[in-house]
Simulated assay, not measured.
Amino acid sequence: MDRRPFIGVSTYLVDASWSDWRDRPVALVPDRYTAYVRNSGGIAVLLPPDAPERAPEVLARLDALVIAGGPDLDPAYYGQPRHPRTEVDSPERDVWEAALIRAALAAGIPLLGICRGMQVLNVVCGGTLLQHLPDVVSPDVHGGSPGKYGEHAVRPVPGTLLGGLLPESELTVPTFHHQAVDRLGDGLRVSAHAPDGTIEAVEGPGFTLGVQWHPEQGEDLRVMQALVRAATAARTMPLEAVEAMGAVVLG
């Protein structure tokens, strides 16, 4: 019997407290991500930030990659000054996730970016971000409330990868974001919008997909199940082939 595919999931770097320990640095990700992978037929493998040149070697041992949500990407990576509402506090994660995405794109490894993950994908491909969506969209329905996800409609684009996975003309999704894609990255196309015009999904060659919402917070497994199927079909490249591509770093 074929093994279940290993799905790498990027992690947060935060200070956390537990038992007798207080404010210790940890690498973690909300359990909804790992449950999302597990309930869709995959095995979640957590990926704490590492040296970016090791990204190809890491991906050689995985079957697919998920870039999780989290804090804002440093706008210096797409050539903009920081907006007063942009929260940048994870430089190691910025570099590491960009390296993972570059390595996944180079190797053709199935890739899913969720919320921040979609934004990093767009920037790695040369795109830019709207740093504070409420400045341009009113009323803002994307941000939820402190500690609570919101909901809004998205409209998949027919004829796209996402449109095939989610064939409804409109569906309601869990959401929590204040940034969004502005200029689309090279090689990507839009595969869903919100009713207010905000780009809600992008996709690229093979199984390269980014969604702006948080599917792991809902009950709909179709996007992750599709990633697991793609990972099962593709598997990983041999380690020697990936290492031959050389180090992949954030430019």
Rank of each mutant, 00 (worst) to 15 (best):
P146Y: 15
R155V: 11
V141N: 07
P167C: 09
R155D: 11
P139V: 07
G164S: 15
R155E: 15
T160R: 02
G164F: 03
L188M: 10
P167Q: 05
L171P: 13
L171T: 14
R183C: 03
Y149C: 07
G187Q: 05
L165Y: 02
G164I: 11
H178E: 11
G159A: 11
V190K: 06
E151C: 02
P156Y: 12
L161Y: 06
V157E: 05
T175Y: 07
P156E: 15
T175N: 05
V181E: 08
R189N: 00
S138E: 14
V157F: 02
L184Y: 08
L162R: 05
L184Q: 09
V190A: 01
D186I: 06
G185Q: 06
G144H: 14
L166H: 07
D140T: 02
V154W: 00
H178K: 07
G164Y: 07
D140C: 14
A180C: 05
T175C: 13
D140L: 09
K148M: 09
T172Y: 10
G147A: 08
A153C: 10
F176P: 02
V157W: 00
V181I: 11
V154I: 15
L165K: 03
H177P: 08
L161R: 14
P174T: 01
P167I: 06
V154A: 01
L162A: 03
V190Y: 04
R189Y: 00
H177C: 06
H142N: 05
E151P: 00
S138F: 12
P139M: 12
H177Q: 03
V154T: 09
P167K: 04
S169Q: 14
T172I: 15
P174E: 01
P167D: 04
H178P: 11
L188Y: 10
P158L: 04
S145K: 15
E168Q: 15
V173A: 10
T160V: 06
L166R: 07
V154G: 02
L166A: 07
Y149K: 06
A180M: 00
R183D: 13
H177E: 03
L161P: 03
H142M: 09
T172C: 13
G164H: 13
G159E: 10
H152W: 11
H142F: 07
L188D: 13
V141L: 15
V190F: 01
S145A: 14
E151K: 07
L161S: 06
T175P: 10
R189V: 08
V190I: 09
L162Y: 04
T172Q: 13
L165S: 05
Y149I: 01
V157Q: 02
D182C: 00
E151F: 13
L161G: 02
L184V: 04
G163L: 01
D182K: 10
H142Q: 06
D182P: 01
F176Q: 14
E170N: 06
